[in-house]
Amino acid sequence: MNIIGRLTRDAQIRTTPQDKQVVNFSVAINDSYKNKQGERVEQSTYLDCSYWISTSVAKVLKKGTLVELTGRVSTRAWMGRDGEPKAGLNFHTSQIKLHGGSKKEQSVQADTTPEEQVIAGETTTDNLPF
């Protein structure tokens, strides 16, 4: 499944009790449609995302960055601090592509190694097979 959205916060690296590192971030997906009355309705969906492949991508995943993600969706449920049941969507990311961004973000991306740019879905090499 592919989704396109903007990061709602900077990515964070977390270490699990099994000493595995994961990059966690949140994405907002905006959609709009016209209802039966012909009024435009704006709708936002928020997904908590995880990326287990490489933590170096966290350097370029900053709030407001437009990203295209490939992966799978899962649901989760938990009991809130107030005792009320809660539910959310998780997106287990397998590929990240950066789209656009500010000059500041582009300069951060330019400082990454070619290996890190491939991880983030961006390549700068011209070694194309065709």
Rank of each mutant, 00 (worst) to 15 (best):
G71P: 02
R76M: 08
P85W: 12
E122P: 00
Q43G: 01
E115M: 09
G64P: 01
N90R: 11
D111H: 14
L7A: 08
W52E: 06
Q12N: 05
H99A: 10
Q37N: 06
I13D: 01
S74E: 14
R14T: 09
R76T: 11
E84R: 08
A87E: 12
F91N: 04
K34S: 09
V108H: 08
I53P: 01
S32C: 03
D126F: 11
W52L: 06
K36A: 13
T93Y: 02
F25T: 06
Y46C: 07
L61F: 08
S32M: 06
T16F: 07
D10E: 05
S74R: 14
Y33V: 02
T112V: 13
R9S: 14
I53R: 13
T93N: 05
H99S: 04
G83F: 08
L69F: 06
L128E: 13
T55L: 06
V67A: 06
E68A: 15
G64K: 02
S102I: 06
G88Q: 01
F130Y: 12
S50F: 06
V23M: 02
Q21G: 06
E68L: 07
K63F: 03
T55V: 11
L61G: 09
T113P: 03
Q117D: 12
K34D: 04
K104G: 12
S50P: 02
R6Y: 01
A11W: 00
Q109D: 01
K63Y: 04
D111I: 04
K62C: 09
A11K: 03
G121W: 03
D48E: 15
H99K: 09
G80Q: 13
Q106E: 13
I96K: 05
V60C: 12
I53W: 08
P85S: 13
G5M: 10
V73W: 03
Y33R: 04
N35Y: 00
E115G: 08
V67T: 10
T113M: 05
T123G: 15
Q106N: 10
T45F: 14
D19A: 07
V108S: 06
R72D: 06
R76G: 15
S94N: 11
T16A: 12
D31C: 00
T124Q: 12
F130Q: 08
A77T: 15
T75D: 10
Y51M: 05
H92R: 05
V27N: 01
G88K: 05
V60N: 02
Q43F: 02
V57K: 02
L66I: 13
Y51I: 00
V73F: 14
P17C: 13
Q109M: 14
V27A: 03
L128T: 09
N90Y: 12
A120P: 00
T125N: 15
A28L: 02
K20H: 04
A28H: 00
E122H: 14
A77F: 11
V41I: 15
N127P: 02
R81L: 11
L66Y: 05
V22D: 07
F130T: 13
R40S: 10
L61R: 04
G5P: 03
G100H: 12
V118L: 15
D111K: 14
K97T: 11
D31L: 00
S26V: 07
T75S: 14
G38D: 01
E116C: 09
W52N: 10
Q18P: 01
A77N: 15
V73Q: 14
E116P: 01
F91T: 09
T55R: 06
G101C: 11
G121N: 08
E116S: 13
K103T: 12
E68V: 10
S54E: 09
T75W: 07
